[in-house]
């Protein structure tokens, strides 16, 4: 089904109808009630959700690649089993989110086609390479840590299926962050070379992790202004509960003491406690880099997408065989009846 022609919305696109939708929908939103799949909803609300859930789902499955890269080289059987379980969880997160998006009348294959064609995005964090084993630790600690910070408020998102998927995801994420911290904790107390490896990984992942919260919603440039109005609308709809900058600050405040515990340095000379604000001050984020990587010019963009397409194409025969088998048995069942 084409995403633009879903159910009740198109049945009667008169002004009266739009008015009823607005009143009913607005009433539910005002009462902080959940919107469910077959409820009438404004087209813009639906489009925003489909886009956000698709991007989120794409991020989960593309996110399997940087870590999957280390499964065969994990330093022990224990680490290998853990990493496989984590990567498998990310596949699961992608599937929860695709099925949540499908409740709005889009088809998963349609969303995947858009990803493969580069028409829908995924989180730019996954366009950075995993150069050493310590990167697996840094990803779990920082990237999953930032993802949790972003995702916990989504458990209260106004769209029921999205919120429910997020509850499952958040439950599973906490092990991801802890296993990452544990990897770094072990390396930081290992040999000098291991400690250096851990520090190097943190140096490379810290800033991209801060970018995961998205551009500042208080900015004055064009992108900032666009983000601001986008954030405002999403907040009014109950899709977003906190501003990007607030979540980023929370993440910094949470992470600084953890880094101290690890005995690793966060690569920001401007990082200092502000008595006045009651928060950690931190340095300027390189938004040029963010827009560049998001726009396709990161270290691994082409590789990630090519790998994703290849995996999809090479799996085609499995999907076809399963469908043929199912068709054969369905036909036999009918013959017998």
């Amino acid at each position: 089904m084409d995403g633009s022609q879903v159910g009740p919305l198109n049945a009667a696109e008169t002004e009266d109808y739009a008015q009823v939708v607005e009143e009913h929908f607005g009433g539910l939103i005002d009462a902080d009630q959940r919107i469910e799949p077959r409820d009438a909803m404004p087209a813009a609300y639906r489009d925003t959700l489909v886009r956000q859930m698709a991007q989120h789902a794409h991020s989960e499955i593309i996110g399997m690649q940087p870590e999957g890269n280390w499964i065969t080289r994990a330093p022990s059987l224990r680490r290998k089993a853990i990493l496989m379980a984590k990567v498998q969880d990310e596949a699961g997160h992608g599937l929860y989110l695709y099925s949540a998006a499908e409740t709005l009348g889009v088809d998963r294959s349609e969303l995947l086609a858009k990803l493969h064609a580069g028409k829908q995005k995924y989180s730019s964090i996954f366009n950075y390479p995993t150069l050493t084993w310590a990167d697996v630790g840094a990803i779990g600690w920082l990237v999953d840590g930032a993802a949790i910070m972003n995702q916990v408020p989504l458990c209260r998102c106004s769209y029921g299926p999205y919120a429910r998927a997020m509850v499952r995801i958040c439950k599973e994420e906490s092990f991801h962050q802890r296993q990452g911290f544990e990897i770094l904790w072990t390396l930081a107390r290992g040999t000098e070379a291991q400690r250096e490896m851990a520090q190097d990984a943190v140096d490379r992942w810290w800033w991209p992790s801060l970018m995961m919260f998205g551009p500042p919603d208080t900015g004055e440039n064009v992108n900032g202004a666009a983000t601001q109005s986008h954030t405002k609308q999403s907040m009014a709809w109950g899709i977003k509960r906190f501003a990007n900058d607030d979540l980023r600050q929370k993440f910094v405040d949470m992470t600084v003491p953890q880094a101290e515990k690890l005995g690793l340095t966060l690569p920001d000379p401007d990082l200092r406690w502000s008595e006045e604000r009651g928060h950690w001050d931190f340095g300027e984020i390189d938004w040029e880099e963010f827009w560049r990587v998001l726009g396709g010019d990161g270290p691994c963009n082409a590789q990630r997408l090519a790998h994703r397409r290849q995996a999809h194409e090479e799996g085609a025969w499995v999907r076809e065989a399963a469908a043929a088998y199912a068709a054969k048995h369905a036909a036999r069942g009918q013959g017998a009846a």
Partner: peptide, 24 residues
């Protein structure tokens, strides 16, 4: 109800559901 999934037939749906919804 915990969610939904695609599968070629009911047997595969059951196996996929096990992997997707009961990993823990």
């Amino acid at each position: 109800h915990v969610g939904s999934l695609h599968a070629p037939d009911a047997t595969m749906a059951l196996r996929n559901a096990r992997d997707l919804y009961t990993r823990r």
